[in-house]
């Protein structure tokens, strides 16, 4: 029976409990990737073997499925003797994969600022520190906000894959409820709506941030 109110009353708290795990994973992943992606992008912009490693890392993680990366971390590591919890494995795999995407966003942002801007800054007698903090970084930030917002949305959706390694996120909760009841429609609608709310929040936050930057400039 779809739209069974008694069922929904029990379903919603369970989904929200799962959603907490989803949100936690998404926020942690995004925060870690902001730092890790920057490190990779900077390593990539150097000359020599470090840049080669960073480049290879980006290509490898971007061209293999997240799910396989999760399996390697979750099953592979435990076989090798240092097992991680499902949550930790999921988080690690999410960071490994999305770090590659975030690094590319940083790289695109850095490349988009033309060398003329550097020359103009130097012609004004700016020191390196001033050049970067006043001229370059504000422009890079303005450029990377929209793709970073998209990445945050994509991370939020990606977290659903941790259900495959037994983490009780919203997706897993939904699977359990679907299998233990006949109210597939209710569960589906509930999960879909909560994901839509979460991704919309990320999208709106990105837009607000973008608008603030536009005013600042």
């Amino acid at each position: 029976m779809p739209f069974d109110l008694h069922f929904i009353a029990r379903l919603i708290p369970a989904l929200i409990e799962g959603a907490e795990v989803t949100v936690e994973l998404a926020i942690l992943t995004f925060a870690i990737c902001l730092v890790w992606g920057l490190i990779v992008a900077l390593a990539n912009s150097t000359r020599g073997p470090l840049s080669w490693f960073a480049g290879a890392y980006v290509q490898i993680v971007r061209n293999t499925p997240l799910l396989i990366q999760m399996y390697i971390v979750y099953f592979g590591f435990s076989m090798a003797g240092f097992g991680l919890s499902g949550f930790a494995s999921g988080l690690l795999a999410l960071c490994i994969q999305n770090g590659g995407y975030v690094a590319e966003i940083y790289r695109g942002g850095l490349q988009a600022v033309s060398t003329r801007q550097y020359e103009a800054g130097r012609a004004l007698g700016m020191r390196r520190w001033t050049l970067y903090t006043v001229v370059i970084i504000p422009q890079v930030v303005a450029r990377i906000v929209p793709p970073m917002t998209n990445q945050a949305i994509s991370i939020t959706k990606d977290t659903s894959q941790v259900a495959a390694i037994a983490v009780m996120d919203m997706m897993k909760v939904a699977q359990v409820w679907v299998e233990s009841s006949a109210n597939t429609y209710d569960v589906f609608l509930g999960v879909a709506i909560i994901y839509l709310v979460l991704t919309s929040v990320a999208s709106v936050a990105g837009k607000l941030f973008e608008r603030r930057l536009a005013f600042a400039q």
Partner: peptide, 22 residues
Amino acid sequence: LFIVRGIPLLVLLTFTYYLLPL
């Protein structure tokens, strides 16, 4: 686009799997 961009593919796949027979 709003709906598709906001819902994980895994959710849609899972529920197609359960819903199709229904």
